[in-house]
Design a protein around this nucleic acid. Structure first.
Length: 432
RNA sequence: GGUGAGGUGGCUGAGUGGUUUAAAGCACCGGUCUUGAAAACCGGCGUACGUUAAUAGCGUACCCAGGGUUCAAAUCCCUGCCUCACCGCCA
């Protein structure tokens, strides 16, 4: 959520910035709504004030044994006016809330302006693209040959399209990857490991911005009711991890808070039917190791660089070639002020594919969540900044290894750093 | 799932319809005193929103949440959530 004060006072400037990301703000509606809001709120609070004062005087009069009948009638009338003013105000506030909650974050100055993913800017590249002297297979075929390590048919049987069953060494490598990532981030990057719920309430989803706009991307356990009783499967651990800060005030010396968690993620993939139907790239359920940071506002841009580097380290240790893209204004997610995507090289697709997305949300989520910090000697708490990134998507990392580490004989080499997690073995071979 | 007891400020805890602002204590901050500290004493001490140049004043709201009754609700009524204890079931 944007700062309502900033929105009001800098309406045109806000609209200009939002235009960069392809969002057109109806400034006239905003201005009109705001004018109504102001008049109604002032009026309502005045009436309230008057009623409180008079009710109090009734109490006094009664205590002194005076006749209160005429006073009662007067205040009763006032109550009617107050009720209707309240109702009007509530209506306007509802409109305002649904408008403001639907406005995306403002892009940072450093974000390249563009319309879609074609306008994203490559920041750097790492690693050598492997050359193969045999016909490369994609990860589906590689795993199929290895004792049906990826069993999509069973996934369909058990659940439906976009579900998979992993078996044997492939399943173990999937597990090993998550362990490796968690160990790296906790032991070397200073993150605290967390185990979190996979089902969250509506308030959490509002906090990180999935609601009210993107409910259809989620799996819900029951219809979401207005009072927020229904629970939903998390689309990313960003939701539970970041919401740990909801309604909290952190002393400044406690920041930054750095959290990581390995969780499954559930996405309905509404609107992406037909895309990436083959293989592990786009599943309804996938595992991810998530990185979240809560930082002081002045530190968040530097923190984004660091968090991105933490995710990159995973790829580097696995020796997987990748590039870092700065997402353009038109391609960024709803709450992000700036986003770097990491894209890993997939030989079979002969291109780079997203494997991590690292974003600085600035105070966008913090404002929705009332996640704040208190500085030494300053009375008023201020909103902190939140960041999150994948470190990394486990399924897609598995894809990258199967494809980049495939051998002519059909086996797959195990990256050195993963070998301790796989009983010291060096290959997954056909003989296994 | 059953029965019972509860949810009040950072913490403890009083408060069953009005009588100045939710009593009091602890913690915390500032001051007096002191060589310094402690103690004692004095004062301060929530959050959000609005108004505003203002993190100054003033106003409104908030005693788990949402409704209701009333001129007036922490207090009465309804619904939900959560916590604790015991019982049942269970990985």
């Amino acid at each position: 959520m944007l700062d309502p004060k900033y929105l009001r006072n800098e309406l045109e400037a806000t609209a200009e910035k939002l235009k960069k990301r392809g969002f057109s703000l109806d400034t006239q509606t905003v201005a009109q709504l705001e004018e109504k809001r102001k008049a109604l709120q002032v009026k309502t609070e005045q009436l309230q004030n008057e009623r409180n004062a008079r009710s109090k005087s009734i109490g006094k009069a009664k205590a002194q044994g005076q006749d209160i009948e005429p006073l009662l009638a007067e205040v009763s009338e006032l109550g009617g006016a107050l009720d209707s003013a309240k109702a009007e105000l509530a209506e306007v506030m509802n409109q305002w809330d649904s408008l403001v909650l639907g406005i995306p974050n403002l892009p940072d100055e450093s974000v390249p302006v563009g319309e879609n993913e074609d306008d994203n800017v490559e920041i750097r590249k790492w690693g050598e693209i492997p050359q193969f002297d045999f016909a490369v297979k994609d990860h589906v075929d590689v795993a199929e040959a290895l004792h049906r390590g990826l069993d999509f048919e069973s996934g369909v049987k058990l659940s439906g399209a976009r579900f998979v069953v992993m078996r044997g060494k492939i399943a173990r490598m999937h597990r090993a990857l998550a362990q490796f990532m968690l160990d790296l981030h906790t032991e070397q990057h200073g993150y605290q490991e967390a185990y979190v719920p996979y089902l969250v309430n509506a308030a959490s989803l509002y906090g990180t911005g999935q609601l009210p706009k993107f409910g259809e991307d989620l799996f819900h356990t029951q219809p979401l009711t207005a009072d927020g009783q229904g629970m939903s499967l998390i689309p990313t651990a960003e939701v539970p991890l970041t919401n740990l800060a909801r309604d909290e005030i952190f002393d400044e010396e406690l920041l930054p808070v750095k959290l990581t968690a390995h969780t499954p993620c559930f996405r309905s993939e509404a609107g992406s039917s037909g895309r990436d139907t083959r293989g592990l790239i786009r599943q309804h359920q996938f595992d991810k190791v998530e990185l979240v940071q809560l930082v002081k506002p002045e530190d968040s841009m530097q923190a984004l660089e660091e968090l991105t580097a933490h995710a990159e380290t995973v790829l580097q240790k696995l020796a997987l070639p990748y590039r870092v893209m700065s997402l353009c204004t038109g391609d960024m997610g709803f709450g992000a002020a700036k986003t770097y995507d990491l894209e890993v090289w997939l030989p079979a697709q002969n291109c780079y594919r997203e494997i991590s997305s690292c974003s600085n949300m600035q105070d966008f989520q913090a404002r929705r969540m009332q996640a704040r910090l208190r500085r030494k000697g300053v009375k008023k708490p201020e909103l902190l900044h939140t960041l999150n990134g994948s470190g990394l998507a486990v399924g897609r990392t598995l894809v990258a290894i199967l494809e980049n580490y495939q051998q002519a004989d059909g086996s797959v080499a195990i990256p050195t750093v993963l070998q301790p997690y796989m009983g010291g073995e060096t290959h997954i071979s056909l003989a296994d």
